[in-house]
Amino acid sequence: MAKTRSSNALLQGAAIVLAVLLTTLVLLAAKAPPFAAYANIVLGAVGSWDVAANVLVSWVPLLLVTAGLLITFTAGLWNIGIEGQITLGAIFTTWMLRGLQASGLDPSLIISMSILAGMAGGALWALLAGALKTFGGVNEIFGGLGLNFVASALNLWLIFGPWKRPGVASMSGTVPFAPSLWLPTLTEQSRLSPSALVIALLAIVLVYLLLKGTYFGLRLKAVGKNPNSAYLLGVPTWQHMMISFALCGIFAGLAGAVQVTSVYHRLIPSISSGYGYLGLMVAMLAGFNAAVAAPVALFFAALNVGSIQLPIVLRQDSSLAGVLQGTLVLFVLLMQGVRERLAGKGLPQ
């Protein structure tokens, strides 16, 4: 046992070293000084309270999305449609905000209702992917991808059409909401909303408890490991899949709601910001473990925020953070394969 654990740690360490090596090679190919690049990413992520706060701002939606994805992964589902679910969450939130902004209701009530609407929107879109799989026999990967495109088109249509600014159709999105409808931030200058942070932390704890400590979590795991056996053992399989889609959609919708109420204060074309795809990587890298996912998501958020320094200081493209994130996931998965082979289990299925 101790031996496997240490060899596991060794393999994980090897994965990280390999990922850093490959990224360094990419940096050298781009004629960038690797050490300075890494140093700037670190400084850009933790160099001041402001940038550290920005990392947390980026952590919130990523954590929410990852929390949701852990549920669908546990049920053995590849919820690629997560991007669309974030977008729909943002659209529903905007819709509710627009509807109520002139109502005279208490702003905190309006914000709460809008966030709930966002959660409903995300769940709806996820259930659509689930229904396509359950009743239409469409693999959730393809259904989800298709729904992502539909969500994106719907979003653009709203921004350039019915919800456009007076007389102006602009990529910069809809008219910003009044500051009273923004999720309150720590200070006037800060971008970090403590309530959003608390929501995200609650979400990951909730998912951790749900998957580790409940009967539902156990059954979900059974469905994920082997749906046929689970069915034979009396677990209502498709119902569990649908519930896991809905739960994931709720978290994704919540992420979209946070993007609208606390980050952009309006609906913009790329409102999902790619957090869905990033969340998939976080979940994989974390080995589908909620306790590990939180720090991994924080690390990815830090890479994203820190890499903004690359174009500013080194004139390098900030997509380098994506290279590092991608290679990390690849090598970790690769090392898992190696480990399984070493353990004599043969090739992974």
Binding site: S58, R191, V263, Y264, S270, S273, G274, Y275, N304, I308
Partner: peptide, 12 residues
Amino acid sequence: NSADRPGTTVSQ
């Protein structure tokens, strides 16, 4: 712009 630098805001 938010298409090229997703997740960031211009003020950030």
